[in-house]
Design a protein around this nucleic acid. Structure first.
Lengths: 196, 196
DNA sequence: TGAAAATCTTGTCCTAGTTCAATGCATGGG
DNA sequence: CCCATGCATTGAACTAGGACAAGATTTTCA
């Protein structure tokens, strides 16, 4: 049950068995059915969830109803709306939705607080997770500016080779910031060029 | 000398005078002339710098020489390449360059370590800074996907009203991910529509 | 101060990607 | 098992924005 999350959290800080025990004691386990919206826009996100099994997406919607996927989270990654809960005044437009039946280990801001009190070195682990998150997002911003649609798709395939088999294509298009139709055209173009 | 940085770091964690004293004691002051490249691609970034006075830009360059500005930092903000120093194996393509004569307060990874040992609550402050950074970057990614060039420019003006007076227009274009020529056209279009 | 360098503007042509529609294809729920 | 609904594909017409080039304007600094 806890092996995945423990090895994930231990990647950048070497925790003692006692620290991990505190950590595991504070986590709660939750199963959520596919196509469930775990967080609606405007709500305050009261969880940070580690995906033990399944797949979820996080997205926003702009005033014209245009939907952009910010993140797919699969096994061994974290999903939350940490970042926007900071802008106290401005309402979050983020949604989080399960795409498959999911198993999570999660905690609330309050239990996270407790964790930091009882085992302060976790503060560091979460700072580093945040840094990685920032690095990935910066890189994606850079690519979204410099790459063509086809290059973005190639990059995505290289980075997340297993996701295309699990999620609908128009979600990937939305993640890449291109239209679903155009992604389809790119794919047929690639297939054709392979056959000659 | 330290009033700016102290009020900035105290924004999300309430530090005691003693803690702030430790903090200030570890910082070093540095003046750097305009148009100096403080960090070249491929180097390891060995500083986190708080801008007391001046203006700097952080940017990458892709294989075709295309330059994208990731961040402008002016008074009271931080500049560093925290995020990429994490990918140990992959070489950073980030540059940091002063655009004006600058005053910095900065520390190295080692003094930051010392700080966390001597006053662990700073770990939290830097985690929160990181979160804000992530929030801003996510928001920018979203806008870079959904907004038109003109909307991006408007957004930029609203968010950073003082920067256009300080930096060259083609830098702003590069930040927005549009060509310098097109930004110029947007600006004349706006001016014309104002005159009628 | 004056010339060189950098920056900004404007026009023309061009293309990557969008929008809209129509059609075919899965698939999963009753 | 069948039908409704969502999903992918394809095509035609359109457009936001890029690339290039040539001037105009501003900055820099000797």
């Amino acid at each position: 049950m806890f092996t995945q999350i423990n090895s994930s959290i231990s990647r950048y800080v070497n925790f003692t068995p006692e620290e991990l025990e505190i950590f595991n004691g504070l986590l709660s386990h939750k199963q959520i059915a596919k196509k469930t919206i775990m967080l609606h826009e405007g709500e305050k996100c009261n969880f940070e969830a580690f995906v033990v099994k399944g797949c979820v997406r996080k997205y926003y919607i702009d005033k014209n109803g245009f939907e952009v996927i910010l993140q797919f989270a699969v096994e061994n990654s974290w999903i939350s709306d940490i970042s926007f809960s900071i802008y106290e005044d401005c309402v979050s437009h983020v949604f989080i939705e399960t795409l498959e039946n999911c198993d999570f280990l999660l905690f609330s801001p309050e239990t996270k607080e407790k964790l930091f009190e009882q085992a302060p070195r976790f503060e560091r682990a979460f700072r580093i997770l945040m840094q990685r998150n920032l690095a990935v997002t910066q890189n994606r911003l850079f690519h979204s500016i410099t790459l063509t649609a086809e290059q973005k798709y190639d990059e995505f395939l290289a980075l997340y080779p297993t996701i295309p088999q699990r999620v609908a294509q128009h979600y990937i298009a939305s993640y890449l910031g291109i239209s679903a139709e155009f992604l389809s055209k790119i794919r047929t173009r690639k297939l054709k060029s392979l056959n000659f």
